[in-house]
Nucleic acid binder design. Structure first.
Lengths: 365, 365
DNA sequence: ATGAAAGCGCTAACAC
DNA sequence: GTGTTAGCGCTTTCAT
């Protein structure tokens, strides 16, 4: 079963007694080939164990049969799962998937996209850190079809300029916040990934703020956690929230990873979840659902998102227009959710300064 | 910033007033180029935004600067994390990572490897379902350097025939089982992924059995969960274990995902963890550690494993000999671990048949 | 329906 | 130190 030197199309042609062009036609189903000849060629292919070389094919036809994917990280299961959907959908169409991660670094991100393009991928599925027009333009400038996944660009009226598969993070988190408010919570804090590295995090904060505003409640400054040192920085941010004299009775987290850590940290600080603090996450990671208590969260269909992104991408590759797809989200109740206690003491001892919720005109930094 | 037609090396040569060969030399640092000329070339490259086309380069030089990775699934964070290590290590050397998943399907697995090879990858990092010699041979037959990750092939004396980065699952689980026995557990059951799709799972079972044997305790038949329907099938298997008249006081799971589900399921069945049932996992997923109670487990360095695999792979690509690397594992205590209760009632009502631990001469099927 | 030949972008071998 | 050129494996005209 071992072959020293890979067979080329010429070897096949010789073995089948035909011209290389004919072999190519059989291979690609292009042009007409006599059934008899075709089967002779197929025979030779099988005998030699021939597989067409991707580089030669790509060089000549420009069709690399590969797509490129950029994710911020693979440590977050939500992106891993989405990638799984992408890889499957691509493989189904005979496309390979080249993967790269940005580590939430806006600079590396653009380099990585350029690298992917240089590889000759026919399309891209990207989760960018930032979706401001100039960044989108930088990507579009390569002239390679692309689809954004998970991103939350500011909507612009009129026909979409690029394709997108996502959920509406803003609305989703607004609804989640409303649930908390309906449960009697008035002091609701927000904990998110750094806005500079995640437009999702920012959109979710905006949804939170919209709900608080609508209810006439003061919105808090967001606690932003840098993505590169999530575990450690997280402790600090949560300690800060908890240390405030007017402590929150509920905490909204921009993803489940953060939510899970929040539950653990709150407990280490002696707070009961959900007794003293209700927690809501975002993503719907399976693992967060089987935790005890299960994490209340906004579920998004990660795998389907990946598949949908690939569908959109192939629409683009086929010459279709950009399309923006908003997939449905679901609010999942969970054990981390409880009604606000009527007896909650708004003032706690042990801190020198008096801190309370603030209403930022603009997010900090 | 947008360029309609990608610049070629010829465009650069023209712009810089040199020959294409010179540009190539600058690009690859091969041959000597006058510093002055070089900077002129670099200038032209920058102005034109030129990036060498991977297909052309690959076709000519045979160096695709890409590696291929095969994982069983990306839904298991342990593989996602390992992939992250692989991608990073590869990118650091200027290599792209082409990814594919087998879905634990031994047939698809070999196809996928062939596809990766046809893409022209210079090396492979694989986690195979099965590592019997004929399967290894099938992979080796492509003549592309490869490294196995996570796999647990039967050791063969003498110089290794292929490279490998893994932990010693057998020993690790033997140790974990010994811990359980030291805590007074005598009825210890094993829950694992289907052996036919995972040599890790099998090796772990063997470690479990070795420890039980050494302690003079009866080993149980493994409860095997198919990977394709883990969640549902899992319920059935655990129900089975729990339904036995002589129920286990401890459960060893071949991975953390299973372990987490086991804890949740046991609770749904009214069992206290660890009061009625101690549970141990395998992998050391961060998420399982922040769960409440934290999952006792055997931690393996997933990310480092990925990086190590790439190191080994480049050793191979550079012409070095195969090397097998066993990374260290760590037993992590956790809240799912408790001493066996002295008053544990070995007989429980409600079942018609009397089942107990069995000592299989050979694993079933 | 099939063969012949050009050439995709690049690197490497050779000439100067 | 630099220019010229052949050709990697393939697809795709253009002939026939």
């Amino acid at each position: 079963m071992s072959r020293r030197h890979k067979a080329t199309i010429r070897d096949v042609a010789t073995a089948a007694g035909v011209a290389v062009g004919t072999v190519s036609r059989v291979l690609n189903g292009s042009g007409a080939v006599a059934p008899q000849t075709a089967s002779r060629v197929r025979q030779a292919i099988a005998v030699l164990g021939f597989m067409p070389d991707a580089a030669g094919r790509s060089l000549r036809s420009g069709a690399s049969r590969a797509i490129g994917v950029l994710v911020p990280t693979l440590s977050n299961p939500i992106f891993a799962r989405s990638l799984e959907g992408i890889e499957r959908a691509a493989a189904q169409r005979g496309f390979s998937t080249v993967i790269a991660s940005s580590g939430y670094d806006p600079v590396r991100e653009l380099d990585v996209v350029a690298t992917l393009v240089a590889r000759g991928v026919e399309g891209l599925v990207l989760t960018l850190t930032d979706t401001k027009p100039d960044r989108i333009d930088a990507v579009a400038g390569h002239g390679v079809p692309f689809v954004l996944a998970y991103n939350q660009p500011k909507p612009n009226g009129g026909a979409p300029r690029f394709s997108l598969a996502t959920v509406d993070s803003r609305v989703a988190l607004q609804e989640a916040t409303e649930q908390l408010i309906a449960l009697g919570h008035r002091r609701v804090a927000f904990l998110g990934g750094a806005f500079a590295s995640s437009d999702r995090s920012r959109a979710r904060y905006e949804g939170y703020r919209a709900a608080m505003d609508a209810a006439g409640l003061p919105a808090w400054d967001p606690a932003e956690i840098p993505f590169d040192a999530q575990d450690e920085a997280f402790e600090a941010a949560l300690g800060d929230l908890i240390g405030r004299l007017v402590a929150p009775t509920a905490l909204i987290c921009s993803n489940d990873l953060l939510g899970l850590h929040a539950v653990a940290a709150a407990r280490r600080h002696g707070l009961a979840v959900p007794g003293d603090l209700s927690v809501v996450g975002f993503d719907g990671m399976p693992m967060a659902r089987i935790a005890e208590p299960s994490l209340a969260t906004v579920a998004q269909p990660a795998r389907r998102m990946g598949e949908a992104a690939v569908d959109l991408l192939f629409g683009l590759i086929a010459g279709g227009p950009p399309r923006q797809l908003i997939l449905p989200h679901t609010f999942l109740e969970g054990g981390t959710l409880a009604a606000a206690r009527a007896d909650a003491d708004p003032l706690r001892a042990g801190s020198a300064t008096i801190l309370g919720p603030t209403k930022p005109n603009r997010s900090p930094r």
